[in-house]
């Protein structure tokens, strides 16, 4: 159970960093304003956090059992491969279901195929011309959010 000092330092720092990144990912998912912003933080922050924690576990078992223990690398690789795929599919689902996004979003919607955005496609789903300027539109969207 007792580790050398440097190994213990590395494992502790990686554990705290991993916990912090996982916490940040979930905090972003709680705080951001629309679905497409909320998609960012779990796919980046939480994946980095779980990577840190799995590397910490790998180091801990390798040092304490005095033999290479690389099975955690499997989970790390699997999660690092599947997280972008999940994010992509969730973004496609959000576009397909015409979720609203806040009015300050820049850029235009790229051209999607009909099968990507559904049958009754609207030209610019979240951004009709606001009657009272962008700020009131933003407030209205925020008010409508928790329906």
């Amino acid at each position: 159970m007792t580790l050398p000092f440097f190994a213990e330092l590395i494992v502790s720092v990686l554990l705290v960093l991993g916990g912090l990144f996982a916490f940040t990912g979930s905090l972003g998912m709680l705080q951001f304003k629309d679905f497409f912003m909320r998609l960012h933080s779990p796919t980046k922050g939480t994946t980095l956090g779980i990577g840190c924690i799995l590397i910490a576990s790998m180091t801990y078992f390798t040092v304490s059992q005095r033999e290479p223990h690389v099975q955690e690398l499997l989970i790390t690789l699997f999660l690092f491969i599947t997280a972008p795929v999940t994010g992509h599919m969730l973004a496609k689902t959000g576009l397909h279901m015409h979720l609203r996004f806040i009015a300050g979003t820049r850029g235009s919607l790229p051209e999607f195929m009909d099968e990507d955005v559904g049958q009754n496609r609207v030209a610019n789903p979240g951004r009709p011309k606001p009657p009272g300027g962008l700020k009131s539109r933003h407030k209205q969207l925020l008010r409508n959010r928790g329906r």
Binding site: F35, G49, S57
Partner: peptide
């Protein structure tokens, strides 16, 4: 507010559950 939000929350929950299980493995050695 919508179904994809809940799906994203579930997706994050299983990643956090993996982290918790790995930490439990280190805790119990």
């Amino acid at each position: 507010p919508d179904i994809p939000d809940r799906l994203l929350a579930l997706d994050t929950m299983y990643v956090n559950a993996i982290a918790l299980i790995v930490i439990a493995g280190m805790w119990l050695n």
